[in-house]
């Protein structure tokens, strides 16, 4: 202030409180609208889905050959929502079901590569699951093949349940965070 030749120089300096008040008024006036915008912007962080599961019927037990190989089954979300829309049933990324024998436990694997999220597929000639993006390799049970170090972890297993009466195969469909060694649901 002292550097200017402005006429203001001659005026008495206003008190510190007056300046604080002026600054406060300005900040509040612009702050409230900005805050309302930021509240909406960060809405996705507040409305996280609760994680009590998303059980979906995907097959009958009899449809899965007990040959120990991964078989692809499509996942149909019955009531998919996207913001305001409620859609008719829509397919999601499919899952692999592996059944070693008639009495063996059923294994369900997500088809999403834990590396960077591409869709892996089964290659019958080498009996491996292969990711087309960065050549990550997994065995028939989803364990990363020795020598392949691209993926930070094995394929993600999904909870699976078989209704003993009807033979309906239910899976708890989930998505996991890619690119990290730990298995974190998203």
């Amino acid at each position: 202030m002292s550097q200017t030749q402005h006429s203001s120089e001659d005026l008495p300096r206003r008190s510190f409180a007056a300046k604080c008040l002026a600054a406060f008024l300005g900040i509040v006036a612009v702050g409230v609208p900005t805050w309302s915008g930021l509240a909406v912007l960060f809405d996705p962080l507040r409305n996280k889905k609760n994680g009590d599961g998303n059980w979906i019927r995907i097959a009958s037990l009899s449809q899965i050959p007990p040959d120990g190989k991964p078989h692809v089954f499509s996942v149909i979300i019955p009531e998919p929502r996207d913001k305001w829309n409620l859609y008719d049933p829509q397919p999601e990324k499919p899952v692999f079901l592996v059944r070693d024998g008639e009495d063996a436990d059923l294994v369900a694997l997500s088809s999403v590569c834990p590396h960077l999220g591409c869709k892996v597929s089964y290659k019958p000639t080498t009996e491996e699951l292969i990711c087309p993006c960065h050549n990550a390799l997994f065995d028939k049970r989803g364990k990363q093949t020795e020598g392949s170090t691209v993926s930070p972890r094995d394929l993600d297993p999904l909870e699976v349940e078989v209704d003993q009466v009807t033979g309906d195969v239910m899976i708890n469909y989930k998505r996991f965070k890619g690119g990290i060694a730990e298995r974190v649901e998203v």
């Binding site: 006429s7 203001s8 005026l11 008040l21 002026a22 406060f24 006036a29």
Partner: peptide, 14 residues
């Protein structure tokens, strides 16, 4: 007498 904007007029504006 003349004044300056900060802070007298600024308070009124605010």
């Amino acid at each position: 007498p003349d004044g300056v904007y900060w802070p007298d007029q600024a308070i009124r504006d605010g």
